[in-house]
Design a protein around this nucleic acid. Sequence first.
RNA 1: GUGGAUGUAGCUUAGUUGGUUAAAGCGCCGGUUUGUGGCACCGGAGACCGUGGGUUCAAGUCCCAUCUUCCACCCCA
Length: 437
Amino acid sequence: MAEINHAIKGTGDVLPNDSHRWQFLEKTMLETARLYGFREIRVPVFEHTEVFSRNVGDTTDVVQKEMYTFDDKGGRSITLRPELTAGVIRSSIEHGLIYDALPQKVCYIGGCYRYEKPQAGRLREFHQFGVECIGAGNPSADAEVIALANQVLCDIGVKDISLEINSIGCPTCRKEYQKALKEYFNSHLDELCDTCKDRLERNPMRILDCKSPVCSEIAKNAPVVIDYLCDECNEHFSSVKKHLDSIGLKYTINPHIVRGLDYYTRTVFEFVSGSVGAQSTVCGGGRYDGLIGQMGGNPTPSLGFAMGIERLLLLLQNQKTELPPDKKCDIYIAPMGENASIKASMICAKLRKDGFEAQTDICGRGLKAQMKYADKIGASFSTVIGDNELETNKSVIKNMATGDTLEVSFDDISEKLFSLINESALESLTDSIYKNG
RNA sequence: GUGGAUGUAGCUUAGUUGGUUAAAGCGCCGGUUUGUGGCACCGGAGACCGUGGGUUCAAGUCCCAUCUUCCACCCCA
């Protein structure tokens, strides 16, 4: 396949037969978020590189190896957003949202870009839905955001996911903890795998979720963050749990959930599933009370989450969850001859104005071929226009599923089609009720 | 970045120890009285066999490189 006919590695197309699945997810996400008061924010796909690099810090691979960074024609260093939080916060500071009535509740859907090696549930261009709740430091905010994530996942039909939460404390208690953690792993240095020996300096908390059996055995007895929380953080965490309990949201405490970045504080959470291969996290979120101050805004407690749309679609597919089917063509109009074709265009125009999906021949095909086409596109109804119809101003509408026909005048075709569609919808509804008892 | 698997019409695949014009099913287009789709039958279009080298009289088939896709590791904001 020539390069020009091939999408870039790690990117994909959403084809016409699939786009309704995306639309269903997006619509559900935005509507559910709205129930909690979150309104959509749209921010650029690229930002000054510093928007991302300053927050991440340049210690990890992340900045050097995994960002799409380039110089634009004006010599500015530009980066395609690897996630949306940084851009949303930049925008919130720039436009003074953080100095307006708090909390500011915003949500977003958009493409993100990471230069990674693709595998199951991991692409170079992928899409995230997420929310940021800016200016709410109370534990009830944590519970509300987690509840929203849970409801979104339920509303789109995801099954068998579990919520895991943890608290990673504030910078002060985390310092104590990391010290204890390093000491512990240092005492087992010889037993650790090579990558974990590396991690000990760079990112000791990551040893906790190493997949090597030896390391995870050692990690079992490692010090736990929660034991090192200061009084305030401890209180915050128990209040979050209380709130979750009160709304009946089940969770498990997973002391191994960690975040690499310094601005994260207190609550972190993930929704995980076993149905997407090695990339089991379907939604990740947490509190980042340090971020806005770090970016130059007035320090403002905030939290949010993000979920990967491709990963969710993969999960739904693996779970064989049926999403609402795509809407089909309402009526196909098959003209025979030039005059009929003009009449068909006029009727289509009228029907479309009245809100119906109406299609007619634009390939100059014969009647038989047109009927086949109407069948292929799943048209609910069809009608033929020839010389007779032009003369009488009437035609026969055919129900493609049942074969039933009904003669209608072109003058009130919209009204007739409307009642025909409702009738057949009602029939299939009673059918399915009958079938399902 | 590391490792394993992979690549033949739009899709799913067949193709013998290297041997002539690379095959099938599905899909697509058309036809089987120019007034009716699904079924059946007939016909047609569509592949530089991922790409570039090499071995050979001869490569879809063997060798090397490279890329893609898939899966796992690293990483995961």
